[in-house]
Structure formats: structure tokens, C-alpha cells
Amino acid sequence: KGALGYVREFTRHSSDVLGNLNELRLRGILTDVTLLVGGQPLRAHKAVLIACSGFFYSIFRGRAGVGVDVLSLPGGPEARGFAPLLDFMYTSRLRLSPATAPAVLAAATYLQMEHVVQACHRFIQTSYEP
């Protein structure tokens, strides 16, 4: 029988890991893909993208995904919705305002981030209520 002992659960571990991943992203360390959004490059880690988005899961899950270094996302009015989503993936914080919510909603729909889509819908509904 194993000796009796304790499990020590570090309650902030997940947020500490995510915070370090965000710092790695901001410093360009081990980032392995460039997202081109309306011509603007956004560097990221495929592992984080695939963990957060059904769209990226579809793109990167197979062997073909290993060779993808640059990925173009739709430009146009929705483009400014992608950067807040990337920040959300790395921080768990989603910045929304009445001006940006429709673009974030469109981008989240494209990236198949259902829970964010629902949050955007709730925010937009609330902001239209008197």
C-alpha cells in the first residue's frame, strides 16, 4: 500500500500557465503561426488556438496542420473582432463594447467559439434593453 499523503492543489495554476503563455506570445517566443487578418499579422501558438476554437481544431488537428505557418482570416468589417478573441484565449478576459460586439460576434462565429458567441449575443441583447 502507498503511504498516506496529501494532494496539494495549486488553485491558481491554470491562470499562472495561461499568463506565462500570454507573455510568450507577446514576446514572440515559440509562437508557431501567423494569422493574417486584413493584412495585419497576429502571432500565436497553435496549441492555444486549437484548444480554444473549433475552427482552428479543424485546421491544425491533422498532419497537414503542422506545415501551416501562415493562415489568412477574413478581412472586412469583422476583422477587428479577431484581436479581442486572441486576447481572450490568452487571458480569459473578453473585451466587449457596443461598438465592437458585432465584429467580435462575427469573428467568434467564424472561429466556432460557441460560448463566446452566446456571451456576445447576451451582451448585445442587454445593451439594446432600455
Binding site: 500500500k1 502507498g2 503511504a3 498516506l4 499523503g5 496529501y6 494532494v7 496539494r8 492543489e9 495549486f10 488553485t11 491558481r12 495554476h13 499562472d16 500557465v17 499568463g19 506565462n20 507573455e23 510568450l24 507577446l26 514576446r27
Partner: peptide
């Protein structure tokens, strides 16, 4: 878990902090 009698919560930082870029 075999041999485990309790779970103790650790509220402090769990890993090193990557220095922020200046």
C-alpha cells in the same frame, strides 16, 4: 488516489513568472 487522505489548497503562485517584456 491511493494513499491520499486529504487535498490541501495552495493559494500562492504555482510556477515561475516569465519576466514581462520592457
Amino acid at each position: 488516489h491511493e494513499g491520499v487522505v486529504a487535498t490541501v489548497k495552495e493559494a500562492g503562485r504555482s510556477i515561475h513568472e516569465i519576466p514581462r517584456e520592457e
